[in-house]
Design a binder for these strands. Sequence first.
DNA 1: AGTTAGCACTCAGGCGATGTGAGTGCTAAT
DNA 2: ATTAGCACTCACATCGCCTGAGTGCTAACT
Lengths: 352, 352
Amino acid sequence: MDLTERKLKILQAIIGDFITTAEPVGSRTLSKKYDLGISPATIRNEMSDLEEMGLLTHPHTSAGRVPSEKAYRLYVDEIMKKQELSKSQKEVISKELYSNITELDRTIEHAAKILSHITNLTSFAITPRADEDLLKAINLLPIDEETVILMIVAESGKVSNMALKPRCQFTDEMLRILSKSMTYNYKGKTINQALKSDIVQHFESDVEAMSGLARNIMPNFVKTLEQMLNVNLYMDGLTNIFSLPEYNDISKARTFMEVMNKREDLAKKISCRDDGVMITIGTENEDDQLNDCSLITATYHIDGRLVGKLGVIGPTRMRYGEITSVIEYLTDNITNTFKIMGGKDDESENGK
Amino acid sequence: MDLTERKLKILQAIIGDFITTAEPVGSRTLSKKYDLGISPATIRNEMSDLEEMGLLTHPHTSAGRVPSEKAYRLYVDEIMKKQELSKSQKEVISKELYSNITELDRTIEHAAKILSHITNLTSFAITPRADEDLLKAINLLPIDEETVILMIVAESGKVSNMALKPRCQFTDEMLRILSKSMTYNYKGKTINQALKSDIVQHFESDVEAMSGLARNIMPNFVKTLEQMLNVNLYMDGLTNIFSLPEYNDISKARTFMEVMNKREDLAKKISCRDDGVMITIGTENEDDQLNDCSLITATYHIDGRLVGKLGVIGPTRMRYGEITSVIEYLTDNITNTFKIMGGKDDESENGK
DNA sequence: AGTTAGCACTCAGGCGATGTGAGTGCTAAT
DNA sequence: ATTAGCACTCACATCGCCTGAGTGCTAACT
């Protein structure tokens, strides 16, 4: 069967209506509300065709039609026009975002907040994984007779440290030499590269004592590097879903909360998503628990090198067009901000 | 009216029954289930008295009785025997707790997890506020021509740092001197004391350049110290409440989630609580949204100096006795662990 | 041939009547 | 002082009924 112009128009109307009302939409309502220039009966015939094509479903005989996942997919891929945000909308978003730029993490957290407020859905954002961040300096600082602090600084300004108690004697001199040597070895490399090189094996010094210290410290160097790869996941608007009719069912709400509480899983899932804007609808999500949700995510970039993600989750019935525009606008803003800002004063990144 | 032995027994039975079933308990059920040696009619008379005394309420005429807040208060204060945990229970808890001791934060997070699993309620834990932690070392490290890292180390092993870009020229030598001077000034003082002393004013050097650098750095020193006071709040078992009949009502569940999502408020609220085990029941919580919840919290100590909190939140109908014992056992264990551990190898505390 | 009016049919959801059972409170007998 | 007995209450479940929004089909219209 052919998807005529008219069928498309009807489908679009149905999707639009269902997205706002969450009620199955019938032929009469449709012909009244939208000026399609055809009678309910004709609409019914067309609807019947659309159903045959798998684009509409029927909760029960005497109910109106509901768009299928396939319909949403079609809508997202073909029909949905990329709607520019209005100037005032843009202004509000920018203003909100820029009102609170201190540190990357705070900015990302804030972006998630803005997003959930605008969309009335649950939003999430993950900070960039530092894989490609360049190492800048490595320091070993004596604190007392038995304690040393290992500190790693990356190009982006990220700092990670660990307090160590080496099991062997050490002098300030030894620490200085080892710091220098490590910095010399790893400066300019990405964290990934550093981790791939066989760090623990690497340091075999001629000087007996030195080699002992190095052996003691290297495993912790690896640990600290790995720590730098940790990402933070921020969420906001978790309770927004309680306003949605699809979550009136307590068990649905529960499932949703359970998914959102498995933060590590969620972070991993989101990290894996493609670059750019990505939309998954219902069963397109591999996770069974998300089978009646849709996700929209987009990527932002820090210094053109580090990549983070931002997005929303909600029922399959969502304003794909609008939301996509908002997310894109937000990520673009973040990317731009952290391109220009590069050397902003007062930038910080550190222990909670 | 007098609270006779028998009345107390009946009250206890009602509380016990209601806590497990969540259903109003009637006289017949009571006389059948519990061997009180008196007939339902007598129980009814006693119940009527208890109601007059404000210890029981009546959802409606033809329903059984429900314990009032006052009854729970009485129960908690007077009736509830401090029930020792069984040996096997203790073992399970200890084993679980010790299975995962790496770093203070992880341990506390894990303790919250254990607590929610055992109680089937929502648990929370906050890491100690570092007010009384002693400063140990302050370092300023040159990273590149314009970047300096300020690092503060405390006695407990906690490290906090910030990347700065001073607006003035500096040399390695200057940084070293300033570090030494700051360490000399603040070492051994608590963070609180340090913050109270007028840090910004303090550094007035004779050397012009030095004084400029100091003026540049001191505000950030304050910021970093303040950052060290931040506590982390961990929660677990948020979705447990969905299994409780009192949260079948979606709006109740929503309110609960909203409260738990205001993390800063929650952390503040919990931090303020008294030392030791503290139980607040229903309207004893100032927060309106918690008026049908009870909270049990207890404190743990790190090095006898730092104080953190651990607790659960649930409906007023909860197993106060059991839960209190579990929480106490957990906090005691944590306190002991971090007394002995003091100088454990591999201890760490750092950026994310 | 496509469109539309008309009509019979379907079915979820709301509403009222009814019945049931767990509970109470009171009174009189033990 | 305790208990048996009894009338009374009331939430809750169940049933049948009605309503209204919706469909699908057919026959008439353009």
